[in-house]
Every structure is written in structure tokens, then in C-alpha cells.
């Protein structure tokens, strides 16, 4: 996938050109493009005076970063302890069957990505699913797909 190099540079230039900005810059790129494009990693390395290997190391270390493009709609299923105890597995399974992808994957039409997160801190409302930053509480597994389609 091609990306506007000027846009990438603009995103990188929002933070001071210093190695300590690495995580912040990667977060900004991730937010802008929903993943870390290869060109962006190279640009980051150049701009922050960090070896490309270190940029790659940070990109693969933190869960917040993805090296593959993600879908338009991000569905995050909480896998925290409370959600696990209250049926997060069944919830995830219904989504995987409904969208015909596994957690971490994106539908071929680039519409949906399922992600799992280790606790979003809404444990009292377990199990929790977040569709594009909207929290859904006490999601029974049979309602999961309906909530996703509604957006």
C-alpha cells in the first residue's frame, strides 16, 4: 500500500526529533494510518536518529502497534479476568464465526478487524466489547454480531 510521504513526515514532525520521542511518534502514525506502514518506519528512523532495527523492535514489542493494515471498524473484545469468567470466550467465538476471521485478522473487504485486549478497565460490566471506541456492556454472545453490524 502506498502512502503519502509528506503526510508521514508531517505526523513525525509533531514530536521533537529526538530518540526519546520514538513511542509517541509510532503512536501518532498508528492513529493516523491504523497501522505502521513500512515507509513510515524508515522515515521515523531517519528523523529521530534511531537505527531502523530499534524502530522495528519497538513496533513489535508493544501490543498497540500493528505492522499489517487494519479494517475500517475495529472490534476489540476484552479478555480480562472478569470478562473471561463471564463468557468472553463465547463472545469472541461468535464474532469469529460471524465475520469468518480469527482474532487479530481483518476481513478481506477491509471492513472489520477483531482484536483482543487484556482488560480495558470496565470489569464491572463484563463481558465488554468495544466497537470503534463505543463500549458495549454485559454483551451476551448471541447479541455480539448484531451490535457489530449496527456499528
Amino acid at each position: 500500500m502506498e502512502h503519502d510521504i509528506n503526510k508521514i513526515r508531517e505526523v513525525i514532525s509533531r514530536s521533537p526529533a529526538d530518540p526519546s520521542s520514538l513511542i509517541t511518534v509510532l503512536q501518532d502514525i498508528q492513529r493516523e494510518f491504523h497501522y505502521l506502514p513500512c515507509e513510515a518506519l524508515k522515515e521515523t528512523a531517519k528523523a529521530l536518529y534511531v537505527p531502523l532495527s530499534k524502530v522495528f523492535s519497538a513496533s513489535t514489542f508493544y501490543n498497540a502497534f500493528s505492522l499489517t493494515p487494519r479494517g475500517e471498524n475495529i472490534i476489540r473484545v476484552c479478555q480480562g479476568t472478569a470478562c473471561h469468567i463471564r463468557g468472553a470466550d463465547q463472545l469472541l467465538e461468535q464474532l469469529e464465526i460471524g465475520l469468518k476471521i480469527k482474532a487479530g485478522q481483518t476481513t478481506p473487504d477491509m471492513k472489520y478487524t477483531i482484536e483482543i485486549v487484556n482488560c480495558v478497565g470496565a470489569c464491572a460490566m463484563a463481558p465488554v466489547m468495544i466497537v470503534n471506541n463505543k463500549y458495549h456492556a454485559n454483551v451476551r454472545c448471541d447479541r455480539a454480531m448484531r451490535l457489530v453490524k449496527r456499528g
Binding site: D18, P19, S20, S21, L22, I23, T24, L26, Q27, K54, S57, A58, F61, Y62, N63, A64, F65, V117, N118
Partner: peptide
């Protein structure tokens, strides 16, 4: 943070603040 559990550990957290793994 970047979504890494180990960063709750003090020395790992400080590395993360400094922009490292």
C-alpha cells in the same frame, strides 16, 4: 503506554518513558 503489561514494572516503565522497549 504502548499496551505492554511488563511496563507496569518500574524499571521497564522508565525505559518506556524514555522511548525504548
Amino acid at each position: 503506554g504502548g499496551g505492554a503489561f511488563v511496563c507496569g514494572e518500574s524499571s521497564a516503565l522508565m525505559k518506556s518513558v524514555a522511548g525504548e522497549v
